[in-house]
């Protein structure tokens, strides 16, 4: 494999020791109340190097939560901090890998150009990237195993490669908190494996990751903690504690079959982990 696993954090990622969680979200509400995807009073914390899976039915507000966290949409109430610093005043940034449908892949930029965008603020106003900026970008691409493709136009890459480019771009922001919105949708098993290896690399570097996914099986196996969301936090904690008949029913309503056979819990869902089109059942709305 071409991943360079190093347990020492590189200079690209600031090291912060201390008792504060990497990402702390307190009482966050965003979106029009009652509208699809609106979220209410969401609170959770992610510690350094943790990998958190964000799961919930369509319209549960997963993308809304991400967009509110990075400031793409305003949040009505609530407080977000990174390493104890308030996000609204801190210079610290949260990295965000958007859903792939939101990007114009025909745009005239190379892979290197895309990663360089992550350094736009650090380079500073009225300047063009200098040699050390390009060296940093090349090192970032090397670490996610895409050095050979760095001069390709971004649209010529496969779905899995594009995700890794965006992860490299988020790392170039010198952030150590990364949000990924559905990175596994529409990629094949090999690409999924590559993205997973990149996530392992991030963990080794102490980067905290929150990843939205529909794949409940993967969520159980690959994440330290799960956040089960349905407009509000239904459950947050270790996968085994989060997934049970009660919480799944509360998150997915009547659109989910849960069969308990002794030690095993069998959950029946459709291919996306939740049926589309069925009326939403939520509590407290």
């Amino acid at each position: 494999m071409h991943l360079h696993n190093t347990h020492a954090p590189t200079s690209e990622v600031p090291v912060v020791a201390g008792p504060c969680p990497a990402l702390a979200v307190h009482d966050l509400s965003a979106g029009y109340p009652g509208a699809r995807g609106a979220i209410q009073s969401v609170s959770f914390s992610v510690w350094r190097g943790e990998r958190v899976g964000l799961v919930g039915p369509n319209g549960a507000g997963k993308s809304t939560l991400f967009k509110a966290l990075v400031g793409l949409i305003p949040h009505d109430t609530g407080h977000v901090s990174i390493h104890g610093e308030d996000c609204s005043t801190s210079h610290r940034m949260i990295g965000y890998v958007p859903q792939q449908e939101e990007i114009d892949w025909g745009f005239p930029v190379t892979v290197r150009d895309v990663v360089m965008m992550g350094r736009a603020r650090r380079i500073g106003w009225l300047r063009w990237p200098r040699r050390r900026d390009w060296e940093a970008v090349d090192a970032m691409l090397e670490s996610v195993g895409l050095a050979a493709l760095s001069h390709r136009q971004i649209g010529q890459l496969s779905g899995g490669q594009r995700r890794r480019v965006f992860i490299a771009r988020a790392l170039a922001q010198a952030t150590d908190v990364l949000l990924l919105d559905e990175p596994f949708s529409g990629v094949d098993a090999a690409a999924e494996e590559e993205i997973m290896e990149t996530l392992d690399l991030l963990r080794a570097r102490g980067v905290s990751v929150v990843l939205a996914t529909h794949d409940l099986g993967m969520a159980v196996n690959e994440f330290d903690r799960l956040l089960l969301l349905n407009r509000q936090v239904v459950a947050y904690g270790a996968p085994a504690a989060v997934f049970n008949a009660d919480t799944l029913k509360r998150a997915y309503g009547g659109r989910l079959g849960v069969i308990e056979e002794g030690q095993r819990t069998l959950v029946i869902v459709d291919e996306h982990g939740c049926p589309e089109g069925a009326p939403m059942h939520t509590e407290g709305d």
């Binding site: 793409l72 940034m93 990007i103 930029v109 895309v114 965008m117 992550g118 736009a120 063009w128």
Partner: peptide, 18 residues
């Protein structure tokens, strides 16, 4: 570079607080 970021990915432009 600022115009490039906001043309390619307005979301990134906002997260970078441009």
């Amino acid at each position: 570079k600022e115009f490039l970021v906001m043309s390619f990915d307005p979301g990134l432009a906002k997260t970078l607080r441009l």
